[in-house]
Amino acid sequence: MDIRRLEPRDIPLIQHANLENLPENYFMKYYLYHALSWPQLSYVAVDVSRPKKTPYDYPKIVGYVLAKMEEEPTDGVQHGHITSLSVMRTHRRLGIAEKLMRQSQLAMVETFGAQYVSLHVRVSNKAAIHLYTKTLGFDQDKTESSYYADGEDAYSMRLDLSTIREQIRDAADAEGVDEGEPVGEAGSKTLPVREKDLKKVKVGRGLGVQALVEKDESKHS
C-alpha cells in the first residue's frame, strides 16, 4: 500500500475504482477539473504489490479521495469539500479512508487556508457515517432530502479544521520560521486572487470547464 497524491495519469483507474464501488459516477473531465484546480487535495491508495502484467501497467488504485475547494462559498468562508471517497472492498479495515481524508484535510488548510471541510453521505451508509463522525470528528449539519439520484436523503456534514491550523502554527513556531507568517495562518487571511472573468462566453469558447463548475454541486459525493 502506498498513500500519495493523485497524479493525472492515475485518473483512468480512479474512475474505474469509482465505477466499481459507488453509484455516483463522473466522466473523466470532472476528475481532471479536480486534479488541475486543486492538485494538492486529492489522494490515492495504490496497491504496489500487484505484479505487472505488461510494461505499461498503471499503478492499481484501491482507494481515493477526490476533493476540492468550494469556488464560491455561499457563507463567504473558505472551505473544502469532499466530492468522492471510496476504498475497494478487498482493502477495507486498513484505515485507508481515514488516512486519505487526513492528508487531504491537511492540504486544504496548508495550501488554501480552508476553515472547514464539508461532505455529503447517504443516510443509510452506516460505515461511512461512523468513519466521518466517530473517527474523523465530523458534525452532522443537516439532512438534505432526496439528495441522491435514486431519491435517498443525504446528511450534510462538516468538520472544523482549526485544530489542524493550530498544529501547523505550533510546528512552524517550533521550526523557528524566521520570516513571514505561518503558512496556514497566512493562507486563511488572504484568499488566493484569481481572475474572475470565467462567466463570459466568447465566440468559439464552446462549453468550457466552467460548465463543470456550475454542475458540480448536483454531482454528488
Binding site: 493525472p8 481532471l32 486534479a35 488541475l36 488566493p192 481572475e195 470547464v209
Partner: peptide, 14 residues
C-alpha cells in the same frame, strides 16, 4: 479547455 483554464488557476505543474 485546460490550456486556458490552468493558466487562470495557476496550477502549472499539474
Amino acid at each position: 479547455d485546460f490550456h486556458s483554464f490552468s493558466l487562470r488557476k495557476g496550477q502549472i505543474r499539474a
